[in-house]
Amino acid sequence: MLKATIDAEIFREAIDAISALVPECRLHTTDSGFSTRAVDTANVAMVSLELKKEAFESYKATKSQLGIDISKMKNIFNMAGKGDLISLELGDNAQKMQVSVHGYHYSITLLDTNTIRKDPNPPTINLPGKLTIAGEDLNNAIKAAAVISDKIAMGINAKDQTFFMIAEGDTDNIRREFSKDELKSLSANEARSLFSLDYLKDMGKVMSRAQEVEVFLGMDHPVRFSFDIANGNGHVEYLLAPRIEAD
């Protein structure tokens, strides 16, 4: 059972965070909120999202799983105006969710949760480098790099106390260094890994809205981005596997 209303902008933010990686997801509802965890088809990137009860205007739910088609949900947002509320309603064992927004009443067929990939287990990894940066700065650096190359190196220079991003194309390269003053925090442990910009571009768009993004880095290890959504009542974590160039 689910009966909830939420600000359309907040719900859109949450759905956008998931849609950066996957076209469909298994949404867990409990009496304390929504959560989901999914990996993309290539098993390269993972998203974990949590949306607390407090993010909703009203919220009542029992423990269950919903198969959500993300593109269908995005279509619904097109009908929502600023400040509109979205109401979600689902009966026990029902296959259709009632979604109402701006006077429109949708009846959305849910996906069979058996057809969605099982919830992935997050790998246990130790990422020593840690920093906090404004989401917009991070996204801008990613956008600038995407013009030059399809991959980007991110790392921490322990000696200079900087966070750096370097993209090398066939003929050109670009480098952006963030000194300690430009960052909100930096624990300078030497780190450097190479990542595919294909994934980062989509994640960057979502992260650009966050005031603060925590970035965890290691040596040829995945990167973890961690940030709040829904005015602090929701939380997103991205994990992205690196590219390792063998010579």
């Binding site: 098993n43 290890h221 596997a241 063998a246």
Partner: peptide, 16 residues
């Protein structure tokens, strides 16, 4: 080819 180098270098999460 840009796909072949990508497939050679891109690790998956299962790798860690």
């Amino acid at each position: 080819s840009s796909l072949i180098p990508e497939m050679r270098s891109q690790k998956t999460l299962a790798h860690f």
